[in-house]
C-alpha cells in the first residue's frame, strides 16, 4: 500500500513536472538541421528535433530511415556534414549509449566489463562494486556477473548493454533498439526499467521497430523516413490530433465510389462504409451530404482515435 501511495505521489510529481517542461520547452539537446551523407547518398536530411528533458523520445522509422545514424551523431560517434547538436547548457550532458548491435570483448566476464566501464566513467574505486551490483540487479543480471560475455545470450547482452549505458549516472540515455532480441517477458522487464529510469530523472531517446513498445513507454515520438523527420508530436497529442470517422451505409457504395475517392485523398471507400482518415468536421459534413443526396441511408457514424500504427503507416506512405 505504501509503495502504491509512494508511486502515485512520484508519478503525479513527475507528471506535473513534465507538463511544465512541455510548456516551458525545456530540453536536454536540440538537433538543428543535421545533414549526413554516406558516399554521396543522403542518410539524414535537415533533421531538426528537440530532446525534451526528463522524458522518453521514441524515434520510429523503417529500416534505413537514418535512426542509427542520428543516434551516433547524438553520441558524438559520427560527424554531421551540416547542422549541429546543441546542448541546453554550456556543459554537454553525460551520455549513456547502447548501440543497436552489441559487441563485447568475449573473454571478459560481465563483472570485469562493467568494472572497465565504471573506470572509464570515473566512478571512484570504492563505489564501483556497489554500483555494478545495483545496476546488474536492476537489469536482472546479478546472477550472471561471473559469466563470460562470449557465453551470454542475445537477451543477456541487451541487458548488459543497458547496464553499461547507465554507469556513470548519465543524464541522457541513447538506446538504439533496447529490446531487440528479448523474449516477451524480457521486453516487458526492460520497458519497465526504462519507465523507472524516467522517475530517476533521466532523459531517454530510444528507437524501435515495435510500435506497441513505443506507445507503452514514450511521451513523445518522431518518425524518420528516408532521412527526414516527417512527424514529431507528443504521443497523446498525436493520437488525439488525428481522429478518424467511419460512416456505415445501407448498401454497396460502388456507384459513387470514384466520386467519393476523388473528393479527398484521405477518404477510403470500402464496400458499405467510408473511412475518413482526417477528422476535419467540414470534410465529414461534405461526405455525409454526398451520401444523403445519393439516397444512401446512414446506419452509423463511428468516431475513434487513430492508433500509432495508423499514424505511422499514413506518414511513412506519404
Amino acid at each position: 500500500m505504501n509503495h502504491l501511495f509512494l508511486f502515485s505521489f512520484q508519478f503525479e510529481d513527475w507528471y506535473t513536472k513534465r507538463l511544465n517542461h512541455n510548456q516551458l520547452d525545456i530540453f536536454v539537446l536540440k538537433i538543428e538541421g543535421i545533414n549526413k551523407n554516406y558516399h554521396g547518398s543522403p542518410a539524414l536530411k535537415n533533421v531538426t528535433l528537440k530532446v525534451p528533458e526528463n522524458g522518453i523520445l521514441g524515434i520510429l522509422g523503417p529500416n534505413g530511415a537514418g535512426k542509427t545514424t542520428l543516434f551516433k551523431i547524438i553520441a558524438g560517434l559520427l560527424v554531421a556534414d551540416r547542422g549541429e547538436v546543441v546542448p541546453s547548457s554550456e556543459k554537454w550532458p553525460r551520455i549513456g549509449y547502447k548501440p543497436e548491435r552489441l559487441h563485447f570483448p568475449d573473454r571478459m566476464s560481465v563483472r570485469q566489463y562493467m568494472k572497465l566501464m565504471a573506470n572509464m566513467s570515473g566512478i571512484p574505486a570504492g563505489e564501483q562494486e556497489k554500483t555494478i551490483q545495483e545496476l546488474l540487479a536492476f537489469v536482472g543480471m546479478q546472477a550472471q556477473a561471473g559469466k563470460r560475455l562470449g557465453q551470454c545470450s542475445k537477451g543477456m547482452r541487451q541487458r548488459i548493454g543497458l547496464a553499461q549505458a547507465l554507469l556513470g549516472d548519465p543524464q541522457l540515455l541513447v538506446l538504439d533498439e533496447p529490446t531487440d532480441g528479448l523474449d516477451p517477458v524480457g521486453q516487458g522487464e526492460i520497458l519497465n526499467a526504462i519507465r523507472e529510469l524516467v522517475q530517476w530523472g533521466k532523459t531517454i531517446v530510444l528507437s524501435s521497430h515495435r510500435l506497441d513498445e513505443v506507445t507503452s513507454v514514450c511521451h513523445e515520438i518522431a518518425i524518420l523516413n528516408r532521412g527526414e523527420v516527417i512527424y514529431q508530436n507528443y504521443l497523446d497529442s498525436a493520437v488525439l490530433d488525428r481522429p478518424r470517422a467511419i460512416i456505415f451505409v445501407d448498401r454497396p457504395l460502388d456507384p459513387i465510389k470514384s466520386l467519393l475517392e476523388s473528393f479527398h485523398q484521405e477518404v477510403v471507400v470500402r464496400e458499405r462504409s467510408v473511412v475518413l482518415k482526417a477528422g476535419a468536421a467540414e470534410l465529414r459534413r461534405k461526405i455525409l451530404s454526398i451520401l444523403l443526396s445519393a439516397g444512401f441511408d446512414i446506419l452509423q457514424i463511428e468516431r475513434r482515435q487513430s492508433s500509432l500504427n495508423e499514424i505511422y503507416k499514413e506518414v511513412t506512405r506519404q
Binding site: G76, G96, Y97, H103, F104, P105
Partner: peptide, 12 residues
Amino acid sequence: NEAQSYPLFVRL
C-alpha cells in the same frame, strides 16, 4: 577499431 569500442568512446 572494433565495434566493442563504441561505449568507450562515448565516455571520453
